[in-house]
Nucleic acid binder design. Structure first.
Lengths: 151, 151
DNA sequence: CGGATATCAGTGTAACTGAAATAA
DNA sequence: CTTATTTCAGTTGCACTGATATCC
């Protein structure tokens, strides 16, 4: 793939650029996490639990942008690895209360290391100030479409 | 999905933001093109042919970032719709020479309109100067990983 | 009752892989 | 013999849908 010779139309197209930039981002994260037997959604869930405490599956899904349906299999894996604990919610018997375990916190720290390293690799050609600006602008975009563009 | 309440780790993560931003971008483009019976890869191929003239399938794939294997089915559709013509290359009998037709050019113009409209929708919350900066930075990223990160 | 939760089964799409046939 | 092109068949990952049982 030599997309530096891509059509001018595509190279000026934000939607195309976002996709093309998301691809190597995905690949880098997948490889780094795969070496630890984890996936990027694992990192999302563990982060949410670590930062905000125990939560229901539906809540985790909404906050992390993960489908309720995929969350089931995801938590099955995390629970099988002993990284989270799933127990029925006594105050609402529809729900499971998912909480992070000690092993989960340890894994999260390992993933933190990997993901930090990968971001450097991803943003290598950008100066620190540009990286900050990029994150700001992407945040504006993501927040806008989280509320204005239903799935 | 209310990702404005996503974990702070994720919200500060370029790779996650790129993915989250690419999702609505994809959706908007798919919907706009779908109404015309086209897909985003169609637009890529038609753009390449319109801007740089006839090309082999492998060449189109490399320039547009589309897999050689997917290109086959893609061109089957475009040819069936009469938007491109595929003929054997007399100077290299392995290759097909793909060229855009009059109908293809007309379709391309329709797609141009749609995609322009969609970019406005995608970048709605950003000021014009920010949009330009975003495109610049994404271009730097994409070019960097096109050469430094093999698929 | 309407609305939310967890689960399962399945769909659609996109990126990718492996191998074969052909020809430079 | 090695490399490149087109093609086919198949895999994997991911976002998403629909339906069901359960419970608020």
């Amino acid at each position: 793939m030599e997309t530096s010779s891509a059509p001018a139309r595509l190279r000026a197209l934000p939607s195309w650029l976002l996709n093309q930039a998301a691809l190597p981002a995905q690949r880098l994260v997948s490889r780094a996490f795969g070496a630890l037997g984890s996936h990027r959604h694992h990192y999302s869930v563990l982060s949410a639990l670590d930062e905000s405490g125990p939560a229901s599956q539906a809540d985790l899904g909404r906050r992390c942008g993960i489908d309720r349906s995929d969350m089931v299999a995801l938590l099955n894996q995390l629970a099988a690895d002993g990284l989270v604990a799933r127990s029925p919610d006594p105050t609402d018997r529809r729900r499971n209360v998912v909480s992070i375990t000690g092993r989960g916190r340890r894994r999260l720290r390992e993933l933190d290391e990997q993901i930090t390293r990968v971001q450097h690799e991803l943003l290598a050609p950008l100066a620190p100030a540009d990286r900050k600006r990029l994150v700001q602008m992407l945040t504006v975009l993501v927040d806008h479409h989280a509320t204005h563009t239903p799935a």
